[in-house]
């Protein structure tokens, strides 16, 4: 069996760059730009996309539609990839989507213990805590204590199902629709859907 050469390589090339991270990124960007391998305007465009265009509003739109339309909800739970593609929410780190539904019996929660896999096309770039060692290490073993860190306590009788994103499937939680929201306009419903409720570390907001 071949061996992985990286495990014996103690002189990684990155150490040749400045050690301060901001200077390190700047140095690499400068070298790559000078050689014509990256275009600073393209970098600005990537940043603008994830800072301003793609974010949890996409996921909240999907959830509010599922709350409002039983046919949409059924199609979403059967083949979320096709449904989100029709809405324009297909894309990088959202190529294979599965939506999992919270019920009084089961609360779903998503983690990536090995790195930071996350449904970018629906929720944007993950928050720092999602990428933290504490969340990655603990979510699978003690999800209820992690939920407590978020101020969430589940009712007696609700089981927790944790999804460890070990492949390219990207999981989105469909939170339970809050009570007293019958007849609420779509935009107000969507505003109750938090990012954390779609990761499973939170619940949808109660109406004001």
């Amino acid at each position: 069996m071949p061996h992985d050469h990286h495990s014996h390589d103690d002189a990684h090339p990155h150490a040749l760059l400045p050690s301060d991270p901001a200077l390190r990124v700047k140095a690499l960007e400068t070298i790559l730009t000078r050689k014509g391998l990256i275009d600073p305007a393209a970098l600005d465009e990537i940043i603008d996309t994830y800072e301003n265009k793609i974010g949890p509003k996409n996921g909240a739109d999907v959830v509010a539609r599922a709350w409002s339309d039983a046919g949409f909800r059924k199609a979403l739970l059967e083949d979320a990839t096709a449904v989100v593609r029709d809405l324009g929410y297909y894309g990088r780190q959202g190529e294979h989507v599965v939506v999992v539904e919270n019920t009084p019996e089961t609360h779903n929660m998503v983690v990536c213990t090995l790195c930071s896999c996350y449904p970018w096309s629906l929720l944007g770039i993950p928050p720092a805590w999602y990428k933290s060692d504490a969340y990655r290490a603990r979510a699978v073993r003690e999800p209820r204590k992690v939920l407590a860190d978020f101020g969430v306590t589940l009712p007696e009788g609700t089981a927790v199902r944790v999804w460890d994103s070990t492949a390219e499937m990207r999981y989105l939680v469909l939170p339970m629709r809050p009570e007293r929201t019958e007849g609420m306009p779509f935009e107000q419903l969507a505003a109750l859907v938090t990012r954390d409720s779609m990761i499973g570390t939170g619940l949808a907001k109660a109406p004001a």
């Binding site: 991270p21 990124v25 974010g55 933290s132 603990r138």
Partner: peptide
């Protein structure tokens, strides 16, 4: 785990933006 509010900025430092884009 140290939760962050939903309105926290996505990137906490300018170089985080550039690192992602590079």
């Amino acid at each position: 785990v140290q939760p962050e509010g939903e309105d926290e900025p996505i990137f906490h430092e300018e170089w985080h933006r550039r690192a992602l884009a590079v």
